[in-house]
Design a protein around this nucleic acid. Structure first.
Lengths: 341, 341
DNA sequence: CGACGGCGAGAGAGCGCTCTCTGGATTGTG
DNA sequence: CACAATCCAGAGAGCGCTCTCTCGCCGTCG
């Protein structure tokens, strides 16, 4: 019914000045209280706080950034290719972790989809002083197109970048070790024909998890030839499993590079009338929503993805604020034993 | 207190002033060129543009917002409950659509996870003039906690809000009609025992799709008693399907409220050795990644989710800029016939 | 008892931009 | 040809905040 007349009702936002007036002090003092700097008379501070409450005052971000020459914002870059698999539970959880950490800070999270078509736009946005730091989340290797920015702007990656890892800040888990240990779960229980559905071999997690599997099977004196590669999607997992099954060689266990592919493997295996884990044991990696939504519940490696996001944000904020941080951060994983192996 | 000796390298960002100096004009003129306002001598404009290029100038967001009294930013609210199912392909695609639209505008997208624990923080952030508009995406009904803000701030919802839909702006598809038509696909092909796995009955899509199914089966003279309710997750779809199968009554077709639940139904059906579509035909809703990653490929309703995100953003920007917009926007759906029915 | 030091609060100068207002040049009109 | 209307660029006042600098007050020391 209402004719939307512009941005709506007069929204009388309180300013620092108004608070100062109400509290009978100078702007500077209010500013000190707001940024709880030391050395403000407690009594005065109290009356300022009351005024703030009374006026429902919120500092204006723009004014603050302008004065501070700090954007008070960090940007999450979503490479376009990733956005297609935005639905990846990995991505989703990382973002969640990041957002969770940032809500307790002064930093705002903004998101840009970096269209490969006009990277210039993204670049100038980032370098234009609109952002204090950058987070890059992607499973893919292509995003190292951003690595070069890390000289001019703090940035943190999810996962070890394929190149330039010595100069970059990143957070990850020890994929290789975790893959090794979950594969051991298979070999230790007597499986003799242990295959793997590996992730893309141009991505560190794909590479490292395959390496961990290989170490385990070789150590157990088994063949390391049962490898098929997928792309971390459910469908690719199913296809890879079919190829494995079509080889006609014995097969009694498989380690999938992530849970989505494991779920795909399930449909292939069960579609052929085979049982899990009786005929073929399956283990995955990530412990995401797929792990528990399949039957039987998947034995997998718990990947602390939300933690990973939080940690990334934490490191970025440290960097922005000039605190020292270590370049590589490893988060612990743990084995989650369920019913599939 | 860290002596923030700004860790970042000297980042010599160009200012309007510098551009003006280089071009030999006043700041005002540069500003006019940047905002391509009319009435600037083309020749002058050209030299300004050259100066901009030469200095790699990017307007400072904070300064601009401060002067304009516009944040030039829109916020996406992610209710905490949703963030748990952030991996929902629906959510992911909507966000993608939003981001895609906004990259071509002056608006920045920022994301907040509204923790139910401290809604006050979110509220004051939104009302503090840090944001020009709000987008709310959630399958759930709880987010109408935000509806009351729509008086003070333009906001657009994904999907019809359960309450207050007359006063809200939202974009959606005609769930009921689409559900009707996909169910017709079942009844028209001679299925006589058409069940449904409905979504939550406290969410408009859940309600409307069930209604569409009901209309179709009643119209075909069939029973409308074969209803089980799920929560839009894969696992719930499987459970609901099992319940349907356990009824012991004849059943030769099922309409799942979304593709994820349809995928869940697949595992239940195939797990019992029944064939799709020979024994039971299955149709879904959304046409998301699940639709094509299952075998046989799912017949479903194409839900233009990315478009929906784009449209939401478009409407929000219209609202912010004072252009008129209609409250309810319906996007067209289409039937996608594959192999499952 | 005067000088000095320390500390807390105020004054005021910006931060980089927008936008209204003004003034001068150009064009149109009687 | 004088005067008004038109147009366009420049001047300058902020937008709301931070932060350095200054000042006034008090306690302490010589």
């Amino acid at each position: 019914m209402t004719t939307t007349q512009d941005a709506g009702a007069p929204r009388p936002v309180a300013t620092l000045e108004m608070v100062a007036a109400l509290a009978g002090v100078s702007r500077a003092t209010v500013s000190r209280v707001v940024n709880d700097s030391p050395s403000v008379d407690p009594e005065l501070a109290l009356s300022v706080k009351k005024a703030i409450l009374a006026l429902d005052y919120t500092p204006n971000r723009a004014a603050r950034s302008l004065a501070k020459r700090r954007a008070q914002a960090v940007t999450l870059i979503v490479p376009e290719s990733t956005s297609k698999v935005f639905a990846d539970p990995f991505f989703a959880s990382v973002v969640q972790g990041i957002a969770l950490f940032l809500t307790d800070t002064e930093y705002t999270l903004n998101m840009v989809i970096s269209s490969e078509s006009k990277p210039e736009k993204t670049r100038s946005f980032l370098l234009g002083g609109n952002v204090d730091g950058v987070l890059v989340v992607s499973h893919h290797s292509s995003d190292h197109s951003w690595t070069h920015l890390s000289g001019s702007l703090p940035m943190v990656f999810a996962g070890r970048p394929l190149v330039g890892s010595r100069e970059s800040y990143y957070v990850e888990v020890d994929n290789e070790r975790a893959a090794y240990s979950v594969t051991r779960q298979l070999t230790d229980s007597g499986r003799r024909h242990v295959a793997t559905i590996a992730g893309p071999q141009d991505m560190p997690p794909g590479i490292d998890r395959l390496a961990g599997w290989r170490t385990a099977v070789v150590e157990a004196g088994l063949s390391d030839g049962l490898v098929e590669v997928g792309d971390f999607t459910l469908a690719s997992g199913a296809r890879a499993m079919h190829r494995l099954l079509d080889r006609g060689t014995p097969l009694d266990a498989v380690f999938a590079g992530n849970d989505q592919m494991a779920a795909g493997a399930y449909t292939a295996i069960q579609g052929r009338g085979l049982r899990i884990p009786e005929d073929i044991a399956v283990v995955g990696f990530d412990d995401d929503s797929f792990a528990t939504s399949v039957t039987p519940a998947l034995t997998t490696v718990h990947h602390p993805i939300i933690e990973l996001g939080k940690k990334m944000a934490e490191i970025l904020v440290d960097l922005i604020e000039g605190r020292p941080a270590q370049r590589a951060t490893m988060l612990p994983t743990s084995l989650v034993i369920r019913d599939s192996a």
